[in-house]
Simulated assay, not measured.
Amino acid sequence: MEISIRARIRAGDAVAFGQLFEEHARVVHRHAARMTGDRTVAEDVVSLTFLEAWRLRAGVAPEGESLRPWLLGIATNVIRNTRRAARRHQKALAKLPPHEVVPDFAAELTGRIADAEQLMAAKAALERLRPAEREVFALYVWEGLDHAAVAEALGKPVGTVRSRLSRARARLRELTDQELARERAERSTQRRSGSGQLTGDRALAVRSTKETIR
């Protein structure tokens, strides 16, 4: 009888663990990139996730289907820790003397495209969700896990997953609309301000021309 990959991983089989990495590293990276918005950080999350998975290999359930929920659960914990570390880092940086900020016009230009505008608003809204709701949304919607698999990944009852997902979806729609309204109001204000300046310049030019003719 062939020994299952779960049994081999539980026993510390390096070849089986390598196979696990080959099959799921991209999935973990995609999940981390979506949750953090940073591919470099996502690469670190992948490394830490599989290091932690090796440490916790004895806890793999003897029976079951895909190990993807187990790995994504570990990755979610790693992301939480990464976020906490990033917040501590930001607090430390905030204590340093301020430096000159160079304006970034990329977001403004991208925002003129409707699809990009929607995407930016949704991303900002996602960051405003409660962490528990954001995690459930990411695993269910982005990673395609069913309710039971999400519950397995997070170590929560299925009922809790369902309620968090429902709240996340409703809250995300509300927050996305708020973000879109805010961004459009800001751009409208910028356009009016720019238009006023342009109008003033033109008026000055016209007056100067008339005076020269006289």
Rank of each mutant, 00 (worst) to 15 (best):
D104S: 06
L172N: 01
G64P: 05
A148L: 11
A205D: 14
A181E: 09
L71H: 13
P62Y: 10
V27R: 07
R55L: 05
R39V: 07
R169A: 09
E22V: 02
H147P: 06
A181F: 02
A132C: 12
L51C: 04
R112F: 03
E143A: 14
A7Q: 10
T189G: 15
V158Q: 05
R128P: 05
T40L: 15
L109T: 04
V161L: 02
A14Q: 02
T49L: 01
R162D: 15
A181P: 12
A168R: 09
D177A: 14
R162N: 08
V46W: 02
V28C: 08
R57N: 04
H147F: 03
P98V: 05
A107R: 06
H99Y: 01
N77W: 05
L204T: 02
F21L: 00
R84M: 13
R34S: 12
L154Y: 01
V136N: 12
A149N: 09
R134F: 03
L198N: 13
D13P: 10
R202Q: 07
K91C: 00
L204I: 13
L145V: 03
E63S: 03
N77E: 10
K156P: 00
A132G: 11
F137E: 06
T160C: 00
T36Q: 09
A125Y: 01
P131V: 04
L126P: 05
P97Y: 04
R84E: 15
H24P: 00
R26A: 12
S193K: 15
P98L: 02
I3N: 11
V27P: 09
E52M: 12
E174M: 03
A11M: 07
A75M: 05
G111V: 00
G144M: 10
E143M: 11
E52L: 05
R128T: 08
E2I: 06
R88N: 03
R26Y: 05
A203L: 14
L165H: 15
S66G: 05
V28P: 03
T160H: 03
V45Q: 00
T189S: 15
A86Q: 08
D177H: 13
A86M: 09
G64L: 04
L129P: 00
L51E: 07
A181W: 03
D146H: 09
T76I: 11
S66R: 04
K210L: 14
F17L: 07
E108Y: 14
D201N: 15
G155P: 00
E133R: 10
